[in-house]
């Protein structure tokens, strides 16, 4: 082929490559700017601290206190994290350290399948299995809300949706520990469990924390599965059996009517912006920590 033609094709190819990479990499900024632009009318008329910490949510009267939603979001994702931690940590240790080869393979397949299941299916499972269970607990605890659609149900469902994601990262972390480290500890006379507890876990502790941070931010953004089981009542939940209303659920439920009430769309876009900023911050630092381990080992 003629050289100058080849050269022009290469130029074309290069610009295609650069344009597509730039589109993807600049996406968070584009999203952020567009959401900020939309939420601006509300931000100039009300101080931001009042929007975040006020519990007064009356869109028709122009009161947009987001605190009930923010609080629900925090409680649901922390609860999900608490439930998820023992399961992911235990099975990551079991799969990488103790399990015979074939069992480990089967378990990894299970995690892969779980990771592929769509959020809406987890939500359905929550309605069929978790909500009746929680409802029974709530009845025996004499709770005001015995329907089962509650913060606790949402926490359990969110724990399951984020579990495969976190577990995969933990497995990778455990596998990144050099073999020699384990072998030398074993040679010193430590049992397998002592090695794990005192050497391996200590070695990768910040990595484990980072993996859980990623799980937390994933739980924070989980929408449909949570929306289906959380009850969607605007209130500050007073117990784990009370219904809540997390930020993503607020967005998903109200986008249809947000154009009809003034500034309503601003409030919704502001909540999307908050989700975006929190998730990006969490993920950025968590990935930095995880990177550090990957480069070291």
């Amino acid at each position: 082929m003629n050289f100058s033609l080849r050269y022009y094709i290469e130029k074309l190819r290069k610009s295609w490559m650069i344009i597509s990479l730039v589109i993807i990499l600049s996406l968070p900024f584009l999203i952020g700017i567009s959401l900020l632009f939309k939420s601006w009318p509300l931000l100039v008329s009300t101080p931001i601290s009042e929007i975040i910490f006020s519990s007064n949510w009356m869109p028709t009267k122009g009161n947009f206190g987001l605190w009930p939603f923010i609080f629900s979001s925090i409680v649901v994702s922390l609860l999900g994290l608490l439930i998820m931690i023992p399961f992911t940590l235990a099975s990551a240790i079991y799969i990488t350290q103790f399990a015979p080869n074939w069992i480990s393979k089967v378990l990894r397949t299970v995690i892969d399948i779980l990771a592929g299941i769509p959020s809406v299916i987890f939500g359905l499972w929550g309605i069929i299995v978790i909500v009746p269970m929680v409802s029974e607990w709530a009845t025996s605890a004499n709770s005001a809300n015995a329907s089962g659609y509650s913060i606790l149900a949402a926490g359990i469902v969110v724990a399951v949706t984020t579990l495969p994601f976190v577990l995969n990262m933990l497995i990778e972390l455990f596998e990144s520990v050099p073999r020699e480290l384990k072998e030398s500890t074993l040679a010193m006379g430590a049992s397998h469990w002592q090695t794990i507890k005192d050497v391996i876990l200590k070695k990768i502790r910040p990595g484990i924390i980072a993996a859980f941070t990623l799980g937390l931010s994933k739980a924070f953004g989980e929408t449909i599965a949570v929306l289906m089981v959380v009850g969607n009542v605007v209130q500050i939940p007073d117990s784990i059996f009370a219904a809540g209303y997390p930020l993503p659920a607020l967005l998903a439920n109200n986008y249809g009517e947000m154009m009809s009430i003034p500034k309503y769309d601003s409030a919704l876009m502001l909540s999307a912006l908050m989700l975006l900023i929190i998730v990006i911050l969490f993920n950025y630092f968590a990935h930095k920590v995880i990177r550090f381990y990957q480069s070291k080992m």
Partner: peptide, 8 residues
């Protein structure tokens, strides 16, 4: 980027 929630 991967972590940005779909709803956003």
């Amino acid at each position: 980027l991967w972590g940005i929630p779909p709803i956003v």
